[in-house]
């Protein structure tokens, strides 16, 4: 029995040391990407190609889910607010919750599962089929040629996608509240505009999406680049990308929100 306990404790210690080691390795990898991204920025065509895969192909799911999230917010907000006779505030509710929280977070989660997993699977498979090593053999740095363009494409497309999500969501809220239910159009927009502040709400939301973009793509390229070069390894890395990004997005969101919106209106 005591022997079992010792083995158990040993296992816990091993896991902790392993995860700390992995964190340090990830930080080193991240700084390596930043160091070597000079070449990929000079060859902007590479980033444009990746922008197509991470940005353009994610756009459809972002637009559709933004529309539905906004519509649901409009419906639920109306149901609650009309009890207090404040149904014209539904525009404020939809816009504030989208711009501050739901836009960055939900767009980030969708981006992680649509684009982040694709990045991991692609890089992981390149590693499994020894394409990355072949590149190294031809004196082409795989980090500068494969990893950095994907990283920068993700960082660029994430704020744009989140902005589209929020704009589409506000449109969805407008559709439900004004067109379907019949809330007064003028007060819907004017109440929204009088409450939503450009600097405090919209700019803070954009800062959030930039942070999420960096976090998600950094996790995705790291997991892909360090995936065990087997079919099983690549599938495990893809799963880890989605799970870790989701947790990191929600955790970072709490930290950023407590910094940004504490003591302000």
């Amino acid at each position: 029995m005591p022997r079992r306990i010792v083995i158990g404790i040993r296992g816990v210690g091993h896991r902790i040391i392993e995860s700390v080691w992995r964190l340090g390795y990830a930080a080193r990898f991240f700084s390596l990407i930043l160091l070597k991204s000079g070449t990929s920025i000079r060859r902007f065509g590479l980033i444009i190609r990746e922008l197509y895969f991470t940005g353009v192909l994610t756009m459809v799911i972002i637009l559709v889910s933004g529309l539905f999230v906004g519509m649901v917010l409009g419906l639920q907000g109306y149901e609650t607010l009309q009890k207090f006779g404040a149904e014209t505030a539904v525009g404020t509710l939809v816009a504030l919750s989208l711009v501050r929280e739901l836009g960055p977070v939900v767009a980030g989660l969708l981006f992680a599962s649509r684009a982040g997993s694709a990045i991991t699977a692609e890089i992981g498979l390149m590693k499994a089929t020894e394409q990355l090593e072949a590149m190294g053999m031809m004196a082409v740095d795989p980090i500068a040629r494969v990893v950095a363009p994907r990283f920068w494409a993700g960082v660029i497309s994430m704020p744009l996608l989140a902005a589209m999500f929020s704009a589409m969501g506000v449109f969805g809220g407008y559709l439900v509240a004004v067109v379907l239910i019949g809330v007064d159009e003028g007060s819907f927009w004017s109440q929204m505009q009088s409450v939503v502040d450009f600097r405090f709400d919209i700019v803070n939301g954009i800062i959030k999406t930039c942070v999420f973009g960096v976090a998600i793509t950094a996790i995705a390229v790291f997991e892909g680049y360090n995936a065990p070069p087997t079919a099983e390894g690549v599938s495990g890395a893809t799963t880890r990308t989605v799970v870790t990004s989701a947790l990191v997005i929600l955790g970072l969101d709490f930290v950023l929100t407590s910094f940004m919106f504490r003591g302000v209106g």
């Binding site: 444009i48 922008l51 197509y52 940005g55 353009v56 756009m59 816009a95 711009v99 497309s157 704020p159 744009l160 996608l161 902005a163 589209m164 929020s166 704009a167 589409m168 506000v170 927009w189 929204m192 505009q193 009088s194 939503v196 502040d197 450009f198 709400d201 919209i202 954009i206």
Partner: peptide, 23 residues
């Protein structure tokens, strides 16, 4: 397509700033 994507994203930002926000 990438050009369209970037234009749509910047357009969404402008909509947020001008129509939703108080800019």
């Amino acid at each position: 397509w990438v050009g369209l994507f970037v234009v749509a994203g910047i357009g969404a930002l402008l909509i947020l700033a001008l129509q939703v926000g108080n800019l």
